[in-house]
Design a binder for these strands. Structure first.
Lengths: 225, 225
DNA sequence: ATAATAGTGTCTGTTAGACATTATGCA
DNA sequence: TGCATAATGTCTAACAGACACTATTAT
């Protein structure tokens, strides 16, 4: 039985969610763009999560600040070589990390425009998008799409890209405040913008590897679970 | 590589969540109580979900009204035979279905008391409980723990067992009303109770295989995600 | 001064939960 | 008639969203 790991690596690119694709080197589907993936190496990988980390590092040159198991896909039809099983993960990375990925083999495609992916990578991508959207509606997940420091308007823009709808500014800031996961930096963002500069924030250390959850979700009307 | 499927089958028993265990027939851990599980049969199983259905049917004699993939567990240490991978599912069934399971080999244990399970079945069970609790806090998931018909007080009691805390009666009924998933039956529950009988309900057909979701969750203060 | 965005104060409609009241069957 | 639980009405505090207003920079 074929056992592999596939990773849907998402980032923000040109104001939209984008997925990282790699050109396949081997059959099947050699030359096609596909999600980074590869076989599990039991001698080398402590578990499938470690396999996902290894695949991202060796094939895409990326170390992701957030990597979570998504679901396992299986069946006789998803790989032309026969019955196969793939443990799918999704990763969120800031655009800078993708840009500075060493080897420049990563191709970014609009996450909702990417079509015709080999295997069942279209399904995996769709599941990843649904999961990210769902989880973002009640957690701090989108901060992993931002760099080290960011302003609240920037963070809100990322939330809006992920959720696909505008968020009330006052409510958003209230939520972020009560979550208590951000700390302001005394330096400010000014740059050539002809308007009031925004306060820079960074994640509090205790939230760097942990999500903050809201009880009733930001934007209750909107993003479904 | 060892590839298997394990199922955490949950039901309500003696006023608490209970998990179905089976005595293992073969090594490793022969004779021990464990989650129903077995190898994937690529020739026979369309996918891992089908494998889970087959294992529940053949080993426990149970067909579950709700079966969902939970997560995949893997690593060199979880099975003494070597590096293994298990796709875990969880199932919810009404007590009657477990009781009438044909073969009486199923053993029920309090879900939070079950300890010392072989492999990493303790972890799988913990993940299943967390998932059920989380999902129940914003969906109609617990109706799968009830039989064909039930009263609102009965359903609320099941929610309270799952969530582990009392729910406001008025809020609960409002939520159920606005979800619109129940339809009253003209017959009533009376029985030997020395008080006013409760209205019987059943799931509307369009919700028999689909969850109803609330935007902001019942009991916002409580059950976390 | 003006433009443009950052950030805050305040009002209002909605909703969850508390409490109280009525309803209904059985002993 | 009394008891126990079902079912519903109503009040209140909390909160999300709308709107308006102030703050601060560059041109």
């Amino acid at each position: 039985m074929i056992c592999s790991v596939d990773v849907a690596l998402l980032t923000v690119h040109q104001g939209a969610l984008a997925v990282a694709l790699l050109e396949r080197e081997h059959e099947p589907f050699a030359g096609a763009l596909a999600l980074p993936g590869g076989f599990i190496h039991p001698e080398e990988d402590q578990d499938t999560q470690a396999a996902a980390v290894r695949i991202l590092r060796t094939k895409a040159g990326i170390v992701s600040p957030y990597l979570e198991q998504l679901a396992t896909f299986s069946g006789p039809g998803r790989d032309p070589r026969g019955w196969s099983l793939a443990v799918a993960y999704y990763a969120l990375v800031p655009p800078e990390v993708v840009a500075g990925s060493g080897c420049g083999r990563v191709v970014l495609r609009g996450a909702s425009e990417a079509r015709g992916l080999p295997f069942d990578h279209g399904q995996i991508l769709a599941a990843a998008l649904a999961r990210v959207q769902s989880k973002s509606s009640y957690s701090s997940l989108p901060v992993y799409l931002c760099g080290e420091t960011f302003t609240l308007p920037q963070l809100q823009a990322v939330y809006e890209v992920v959720l696909g709808e505008p968020i009330n500014k006052v409510s958003f800031r209230r939520k972020m405040e009560e979550l208590g996961l951000l700390e302001p930096l005394e330096g400010q963002l000014l740059a050539g913008k002809a308007h009031r500069p925004a306060q820079l924030y960074r994640l509090r250390p205790q939230f760097r590897r942990r999500l903050a959850l809201t009880d009733r979700g930001l934007n209750p009307g909107g993003g479904g679970r």
